[in-house]
Write a protein that binds this DNA or RNA. Structure first.
Length: 301
DNA sequence: ACCCAGGGTCGTC
DNA sequence: GACGACCCTGGG
C-alpha cells in the first residue's frame, strides 16, 4: 500500500455529484469541508476532487492509481458523443441529459454490485448504504489511511462465514437469505463470476444472473449496466416507471391501439416500457435510463 | 402515534 | 400474469 496522486486534465463529462449521487454506487461519501468524495474501490481508498477543469485523485492504493481510475471511471468512453446522440432523440432526453451532464457510468466490481443490488430491493438509499457499510466493517478488510479507518467490500469468501442470523442482525431484513444463498452459489461456482464477465450476449447473461436468489429482472439489469458496461439494458424501478409513465403514456397507448388490444386497466406495463425504450434509445438505453432516473428523482426534493 | 414508501423478488393463485 | 407478503427505517 502506498499513497499516490493522479491528475486528469481537461476532462469532459465528469461531475463528482452527478457520478456519485446518480444512484449507481453506494460507497462514496461527500466531505462538505472541501467538496471532495472518498470511496473504496477494491482494496484501494480514493479521495477525489475537482478544481476548475481538473480532477485530482489521491489514493491509498495497492495497484497503480492511473490504471484504477481509467478502468473504474471508464475514461476511454466518449460521453460528449453519447450525450449528443441522446439529446437529439427528443426534448425530454435533452432536458435530462442537460441536468445530469456530468454523469459517467462506473465500471464497478461485479460481485460487489451483485450483492449491493440484492440489498437494494424494496429498500431506501440511506438504509442500503448503511447495510453495505456494516457488511464491509464486519467482513471486509480494514484499511487505515490518514488516521481514518476504511473497509473493503468483503469478497465472496469473506462473506461466506456469515450465517443467515448474522446477516439478519446487521439489518438486512428479508434479504438475509437471498444474500446468503447467492454467496454460497458464487462460492460453489454454480454461477461463475469470471465467466459472466466474458459473456457478450445480454440475454444469456441475464438468464445466468436470474439463477441467483434475490436477482430479478431489475437487479440483473443494474448489475449488467453498472459493472459490465452493458449500455443497452434498461433497468425499470419505481422512478423509471414513474418518469416513463408521465412522459410517454400517450405514445405507448397510441402504439397499442394500432398493434394490440388495450390492456384492461389501461396503464402501461414494463414490457411496453422496454419496447419503447428499445425503439427510442437503442443501444444507449441504459445511459438514457440513468439520465432519466437522476433527473426525475432529484426533482422530488 | 400511526402510516407509508423505499432502485423488487418470490411464492401462490 | 396478477397480487400480497416480506424486514426495517426515515419522513410525513
Amino acid at each position: 500500500m502506498n499513497e499516490q496522486i493522479y491528475t486528469i486534465d481537461n476532462v469532459e463529462s465528469f461531475e463528482l455529484r452527478d457520478i456519485f449521487e446518480c444512484g449507481q454506487c453506494f460507497r462514496w461519501n461527500l466531505d462538505k469541508q472541501d467538496n471532495s468524495y472518498t470511496g473504496i474501490v477494491g482494496k484501494n481508498v480514493l479521495n477525489i476532487k475537482k478544481e476548475q477543469n481538473k480532477i485530482i485523485v489521491k489514493g491509498y492504493c495497492t495497484d497503480n492509481i492511473k490504471d484504477i481510475c481509467n478502468n473504474y471511471f471508464d475514461l476511454a468512453t466518449n460521453y460528449e458523443k453519447i450525450k449528443h446522440q441522446l439529446s437529439s432523440i427528443d426534448n425530454n432526453m435533452k432536458l435530462s441529459v442537460n441536468y445530469g451532464k456530468g454523469i459517467r457510468i462506473l465500471h464497478q466490481d461485479v460481485w460487489e454490485t451483485l450483492i449491493s443490488f440484492i440489498i437494494s430491493a424494496n429498500n431506501n438509499i440511506p438504509r442500503i448504504k448503511g447495510i453495505i457499510e456494516k457488511l464491509s466493517k464486519n467482513y471486509g478488510q480494514e484499511i487505515e489511511w490518514n488516521n481514518k479507518k476504511y473497509y473493503s467490500f468483503p469478497t465472496a469468501s469473506e462473506l461466506s462465514v456469515a450465517t443467515v442470523e448474522d446477516l439478519r442482525k446487521l439489518g438486512l431484513g428479508f434479504r438475509d437469505e437471498r444474500v446468503f444463498k447467492t454467496t454460497k452459489m458464487i462460492m460453489d461456482k454454480q454461477v461463475d463470476i469470471t465467466k459472466l464477465e466474458e459473456m457478450e450476449d445480454i440475454n444469456e447473461l441475464r438468464e445466468e444472473l436470474l439463477k441467483l436468489p434475490g436477482v430479478g429482472p431489475k437487479v440483473a439489469d443494474c448489475i449488467m449496466l453498472f459493472s459490465m458496461k452493458k449500455y443497452e439494458v434498461f433497468p425499470i424501478d419505481v422512478w423509471v416507471k414513474r418518469v416513463m409513465t408521465e412522459l410517454y403514456t400517450n405514445e405507448i397507448v397510441k402504439i397499442k391501439d394500432v398493434n394490440t388490444k388495450l390492456h384492461s386497466n389501461n396503464t402501461i406495463n414494463n414490457k411496453q416500457i422496454l419496447e419503447l425504450a428499445s425503439n427510442k434509445y437503442g443501444k444507449l438505453a441504459g445511459l438514457a435510463q440513468q439520465y432519466l432516473f437522476y433527473w426525475r428523482r432529484e426533482q422530488e426534493n
